[in-house]
Every structure is written in C-alpha cells, then in structure tokens.
C-alpha cells in the first residue's frame, strides 16, 4: 500500500499534517472568541491557542512518572495517524480504531498516575467513549451501505451529498462532536470552562510541554471532526463549509445554553435518542 502512494498523495499527507493543527487552533480560537461575545465579553485574540501552546512548551516539564508521558506521545501520534489515514483514503473502520486508540491512550495516561482527579476524569472519558463510539461506527456502516466500500476515498464517489441520505446520523454525529470537543452538557471529563469543578479532569496531572502535546492532539482532533462535518456535503465544498459553520454555531449555542450534566445522563441520552436515530437511519438505508 505504501509503495502505491504517489508524490501528490505524499504532498497531501504532508500538507494535511501541517495544516490540521493550524485549522484546529483557528477553530478553537474562534470558539473562544465567539463564546466570549455570546457572554458579552471582548474575549481573547483568535490566535490565543497558539500563544497557549507555545507558552506550555516553555514551561518546566513536571510529571508524576515517566509512563504517563509515553501515553501523551501515543495520543498525539495516533491522532496524527488518523489525519494521515484520512488523507490516504484508507479503511474508515481502521481510522476509527486508530482514533479510539488515541483516546484510550489519553485515558490510560490519566489512570496511570495515582491521582484521584485524573482518575475520575479518565473514567468519565471512557464513559464518553462508550457514549459516542457506536454512533461513529454506525456512520461508517451507513457509508458502506451506500458505496459498498469502507474506504474513506469512496465517500467522494457518491453523487449526492451524504447529508441527503443520512440526516438523522448527522444530528447524532453533532452530539458526538459536542462530546469530543467537551462541550456542555457533555463536558464531563474535562472542560474549557469548568476549571474549578473538574480541576481540568483527565489532564490534571500533565503540565508544561506534556500538556502542550495533549493540546496539539486536541487541535488535530478538532480539525478532523470539522473535516468530517464538511464531508457530509462532499459534492460542494462551499456548501460543506457552510454546513460546518452552522454546526459550529449550533454547538457553541448548545455549549453556552446548557449546564454540565452527569455522565449517567449523558450515557442514557446518547444510548437512547441519538443511537436510535442512527439505527433508524441505518434501517432506512438498508431497506432501500
């Protein structure tokens, strides 16, 4: 497979690897800015995430032990691998597994230290995974049912926008994105706002550059998620971009109007409404 990659693909891979964190940073910068405006504040500059990460790398690398840091590296590298695999148009399920592995590494990093807060954050992160993972797999299944292929590149072969055939899955996916981006009401494991209550949850014991690594991985993840949202209208990138904007604003409104709810609620909610919506959509595609 590797030898089949031509020079253009190598360039695409390289560009997406470099561009993804910048896109992610811009998205989260915009996120902070718009959130501030929604709350009647001025808010930080849009490039604030860059400052944050550069600052983190100039800090003292304190840690609890060495193993913890290995997991941070694995988290980042596998998040980058997801980008590479997407750029290569590889098997979607395998991409999903690489993504899950990346998240599990974060969880394991949080659990490898003897810290109660980190542990609680990790447990909640696994609950989050449990909540959204089925929906992501069902989306891939829906893609297969239409294209007879698991390859990410096959999405481009569909003549109609994916949103036409899987609107319910799109709604469910937005919930999954809200979980992944740690937005209220799903921001149970770590949150941008809940510094005091969660003590930053899962990343509590990471500091300095190691936290920076995790933040970069989060930027990659943000870019990946928004790329997937855009792919729901893969026939026209401008409309896809519009879709992305709508989704972005919707998630921000959700974030700013809801309070944080419990993990139990999250699991019950995700395994009831979005899961059933997804299954309904799958059955609809299947019977066609």
């Amino acid at each position: 497979m590797i030898e089949k990659i031509n020079i253009t693909q190598w360039i695409i891979i390289a560009v997406s690897l470099v561009a993804a964190p910048f896109i992610g940073a811009l998205i989260s910068g915009l996120d902070r800015k718009i959130t501030a405006r929604m709350q009647g504040r001025k808010g930080p500059p849009v490039i604030q995430p860059f400052y944050d990460i550069i600052k983190l790398f100039s800090k003292q690398p304190i840690a609890l032990h060495k193993l913890q840091i290995l997991y941070a590296f694995l988290h980042l590298v596998f998040m980058m691998l997801v980008v590479v695999l997407l750029a290569m148009g590889q098997d979607l399920l395998m991409i999903l597994f690489a993504h899950a592995f990346s998240t599990i590494c974060l969880v394991l990093g949080g659990m490898s230290v003897r810290s109660p807060y980190s542990r609680i954050g990790s447990m909640r992160k696994i609950m989050q995974m449990l909540a959204y993972e089925p929906i992501l797999i069902l989306i891939i299944v829906a893609i297969y049912l239409q294209t007879d292929s698991f390859l990410a590149s096959s999405v481009m072969d569909m003549s109609k926008p994916m949103l036409w055939s899987m609107p319910l899955l799109f709604l469910s996916f937005l919930c999954a994105v809200a979980i992944k981006l740690n937005k209220s009401p799903f921001d149970v494991s770590t949150s941008h706002h809940a510094h005091q209550e969660l003590i930053k949850g899962i990343t509590v014991e990471y500091a300095g550059p190691y936290l920076g690594i995790i933040e970069i991985a989060h930027l990659y993840e943000t870019a990946i998620l928004f790329f997937i949202i855009m792919m729901f209208w893969q026939t026209n990138y401008y409309i896809g971009f519009g879709l992305e904007t709508i989704a972005f604003v919707a998630i921000l409104i959700l974030d700013n109007t809801f309070s944080r709810l419990t993990t139990t609620w999250m699991l019950k909610y995700m395994w009831s409404i979005p899961l059933f919506l997804s299954i309904a959509n799958i059955i609809w595609l299947w019977s066609k």
Binding site: L64, H65, K66, L67, A100, I104, V107, L108, G110, M111, S112, V113, R114, R119, S122, M123, I126, M129, L130, E133, P134, I137
Partner: peptide, 21 residues
C-alpha cells in the same frame, strides 16, 4: 465492542497505576 473497550481499559488503567520510582 464499545463495552469491551470499556472494561479492558478500566482494568489496564488500574494495574498500571503507580508512583514514581
């Protein structure tokens, strides 16, 4: 599969918990 990941990662997390030595 989701549940499998859940119970395994819980356990892995527990047995590798340690302090610095």
């Amino acid at each position: 599969s989701a549940l499998t990941v859940f119970f395994w990662s819980k356990w892995i997390g527990r047995i590798q918990t340690s302090s610095y030595h």
